[in-house]
Write a protein that binds this DNA or RNA. Structure first.
Lengths: 344, 344
DNA sequence: ATGAAAGCGCTAACAT
DNA sequence: ATGTTAGCGCTTTCAT
């Protein structure tokens, strides 16, 4: 038949079996107090009649959407794909569905997404902020209504919202230190236009390392961009036009680092001999570009799983949710590759 | 207050304003027949009372979830990120929310996702199949209930489901022809284990080009893999172990091509002189690897927008949905880069 | 072990 | 222009 048939409800099953809808509902949920025979009959009837449970109705009644929202800057990185795979694994096992949205690192889009997710009454939220985002007021409505929110990677400090991230200060310190021990003295840093907490932490680590090694911090070596690959190309031009060129560049993400490296090479600059490079994230591109890019690595899948677990815990556990949120530091490591090793 | 307050409903607003809930509902939806003053009063009250519309209830009542499901193999590519950005743009303008899931190119996961989306009563579905998928039975329930489904990129031919894709046969033909005109005679082809319609089309294009140029098709030059980057590494070993090595490799996607190229280079093989390479998709990696990878390019954002538009049309338009679904061919182009150009 | 009945929060005839 | 009323399909007390 070409006209779609009417939706089959539990009432239809109830009528067919001459029992009440309540029993059907219970049987379908495998409620312990339903007779095993009835259960079997119901399940069979459901199958043969083509019944499909209507989540919308169930959700409304239970006042629970069974949906977790996840907001990220951009889906386009192996890191994010892994985070999502990890989160999805844990959440789907716990019976949740996922609504994923990318803000494209744009604050107003992030605000709209947050609104839509609120109206859909998500049961919880996993958020990695846009690079642009400078405050998290648009998530206050969730906090107010007691809807758990867990930040990951690009986090916002909030007494009620746990955040899982890496020690950005330390990782940036380590990588800067590495560049210094390779003999670099003029280390440029490419960071975000609007400095979010993550970019700020990395900037801090960079400055701290310089300080510890008695290298004066030089504002003119700091380049602010939107951290896209194209921005990296522009940054390369800025570097080429500097009166005194840097001997190393530490970029706060890999995408931008790769763009910058590629463009720099076009000027005949040798990497790492003339300018060493380091990035952040260990995206796939980092081990494809030549020379391979030194960077900071951390596991997206683990971060996603962990964030999801914390979130579920807060959803199920009012007492867990009531506790002050703590920051969780996930381990990270710097991966030294040829882009930064100045052999004799 | 720390305990979340009770949810504010239209009844609360109605009571506060001494009007009926129906009027509140209408005012909130900006229904034309509501007095402009009442509208203003309602909107103000809603704001001051902290009212947030409950989509779950609205959805149930309207029997419309306002949700579009989108299923892809993997989110981790610039192409997919662009498709999603394109689709999201069109869909959010039309008032829809998106549930995105990645099958990780695994059929059983794809089946589960389809189930969950059905139960959530998505209003429509955008699907790019897993590489593994060999039939689309798990989407029949949508078709039966008249829920519009539009395939994109990795499509399945179905009389009721439009598909938007590129001419894979032609693109593969063109790229193979290009390799032939560069003087290649032994062209290997790396394709999927389970040959889906997309991989099959590309395989067909490859064979057709060989035939037209009187190069006998050689089964031993066909390598079947799961098309990941790691699979490309394995494929490189297979190639190195061949008694008579190929002088070109056409891989059915870029990720696998890049893995294969990198590993091949480690054997001291010169690209393109010893072995030329070509991929498919124009992922970011293709223009990062050295030499840059010849590939097939097509716009993800446009594909996403177009697929979304067709879907919305079918949702709003029973007559559009009733028409036999046509295939839409989006334009694509081959991008010739250094990985395949054998200069004199 | 099962049923009756109420209601989640909203919208849409149908009245007025 | 507004109100009345009846559900959307499900779950869950409270009875029995």
């Amino acid at each position: 038949m070409s006209i779609p048939d009417k939706e089959i409800t539990i009432y239809d099953i109830a009528k067919a079996l001459n029992i009440s809808a309540a029993t059907v509902s219970r049987a379908l949920m495998d409620h312990p107090s339903v007779n095993i025979n009835t259960k079997a009959k119901v399940q069979e009837a459901a199958k043969s009649m083509g019944y499909r449970s209507n989540q919308m109705a169930s959700n409304l009644r239970k006042r629970k959407s069974n949906i977790i929202g996840i907001i990220v800057g951009n889906l386009n990185s192996s890191f994010m794909s892994n985070v999502i795979a990890g989160a999805e694994k844990v959440l789907s096992e716990a019976g949740y569905n996922l609504i994923i949205s990318q803000s494209l690192d744009n604050v107003s889009k992030e605000i709209n997404i947050a609104q839509a997710m609120y109206n859909n009454r998500v049961d919880g939220l996993l958020v990695s902020l846009a690079y642009e985002t400078e405050n998290a007021d648009h998530f206050e409505s969730f906090v107010k209504r007691g809807i758990p929110l867990v930040y990951f990677d690009r986090v916002w400090p909030h007494p009620k919202c746990p955040g899982i991230e890496i020690d950005n200060v330390k990782a940036a310190y380590d990588i800067t230190e590495h560049l210094i021990t390779q003999g670099c003295k003029r280390i440029a840093h490419i960071t975000a236009f609007k400095i979010s907490s993550v970019a700020a932490d990395r900037f801090t680590g960079y400055k701290k390392a310089l300080e510890d090694y008695n290298i004066p911090f030089n504002e003119s070596l700091v380049i602010k961009t939107d951290l896209t690959m194209n921005a990296g190309i522009d940054a390369a031009h800025q570097i080429m036009n500097m009166e005194e060129r840097p001997d190393a560049v530490f970029v706060t993400n890999d995408a931008c680092a790769v763009g910058c490296m590629q463009e720099t090479k076009k000027f005949g600059i040798r990497i790492p001999q003339d300018i060493a490079f380091a990035g952040f994230n260990n995206d796939t591109e980092a081990s494809i570009i030549e020379p391979n890019l030194t960077t900071v690595n951390y596991r997206g899948d683990i971060m996603g799983e962990e964030a999801a677990r914390i979130l579920i815990d807060r959803i199920n556990n009012a007492s867990a949710a009531a506790q002050p949120a703590k920051k969780i530091m996930q381990k990270s490591e710097i991966i030294i590759r040829d882009s930064s090793v100045k052999r004799k």
